[in-house]
Computed example of a mutant assay.
Amino acid sequence: MNTPTLENNRVKLSLLTLNNYSEILKIGQQENLVLYSPSKIATPEDLKNYTATAVAGYQNETVIPFIIFDKQTNAYAGTTRFAHIDWHNKVLHIGWTWIGHEFQGTGLNMNMKFLMLQYAFEVLKFDKVEFRADERNIASRKAIEKIGGTLEGLLRKDMLMLDGFKRSSCCYGILNEEWPAIKTSIFKDFE
């Protein structure tokens, strides 16, 4: 599988591996970073296992995990990925995104999502990009809506959280034919 490095003036997304995950160990230990996720990343062993799962998905060509480098602060910021890649139906998910608290609200996420959407639609020529968010995670839901995601439905009690709570997931999508208008309106300053 071709491994892209996605980059603009603000951010560089390169392949997350077992050789570079240690760059984000301290960020993964921040409190409440993945509050609405079933992922465990708070300890070095947790983050190694999280990365190993992503690497296994990459080897199976169903995941492309990225480590995020913020060029503005010259620091690693977190991770994101393409996942549930369905090459036949040309649909993938963007998710498993977490960035340190100090990077949130700085425009970093918008730059990342622009690069990822551009790659999914313009290079991979996929028909649809999907996003999932815990229905309680208003900040993530607003972020998805801000980049043009359309709420398509709710999967009720579909995911078991670490604390035993069974969350419901909001499903969002962007279609390939919607991308040109989203790119010129929402992302007009990101090329």
Rank of each mutant, 00 (worst) to 15 (best):
M110N: 10
N2R: 13
Q29L: 03
L13S: 07
E7P: 05
V34R: 03
I85L: 09
L13A: 08
Y21A: 10
A75D: 11
I64E: 00
T79Y: 03
D189F: 12
T3S: 13
I24G: 06
M1E: 10
T184E: 14
T80I: 11
G78R: 02
C170W: 05
T150L: 11
H101Y: 00
S37Q: 09
I147G: 01
A52V: 01
A77R: 02
F131Q: 06
L155H: 11
P44N: 10
S168T: 07
W87Q: 09
F103H: 10
I138V: 15
K142I: 07
A52S: 15
L92F: 02
T97C: 03
S168F: 08
I147D: 01
N20E: 12
F190R: 11
S140C: 06
Y76K: 06
I67V: 13
L117G: 02
S169G: 03
L6V: 09
L47I: 11
L160N: 07
V129M: 07
T150I: 14
I64Y: 03
D70I: 06
L18Y: 12
S169H: 05
H101S: 11
K157M: 11
K188C: 10
V123F: 08
R141Q: 12
G57V: 01
F114M: 05
T73V: 05
A133Y: 07
A143G: 02
F66D: 03
G153I: 00
P44D: 08
F190M: 13
I94K: 00
E191N: 15
V55N: 09
M116L: 10
S22N: 14
N9Q: 15
G164C: 12
Q118T: 09
E23R: 15
L35A: 11
Y21G: 08
G57Q: 01
V91E: 00
T43G: 06
L18S: 12
T17R: 12
E61V: 00
I182D: 03
F187P: 02
N8C: 10
K157V: 04
P65C: 08
K90F: 02
A56R: 14
L15M: 13
E130I: 14
K188Q: 12
T80R: 02
N74T: 11
T62H: 05
R167W: 06
R156M: 02
R132S: 04
G57P: 01
H93I: 01
N20K: 13
E61M: 03
E145N: 04
H93Q: 10
E145Q: 15
L108A: 07
P38I: 05
S140H: 04
N111E: 08
L124D: 08
A120E: 03
T62L: 00
G148A: 09
L124I: 07
L124K: 10
K188E: 09
L15G: 05
Y119V: 04
L33M: 05
F114Q: 04
Y21H: 14
H88G: 00
L124N: 08
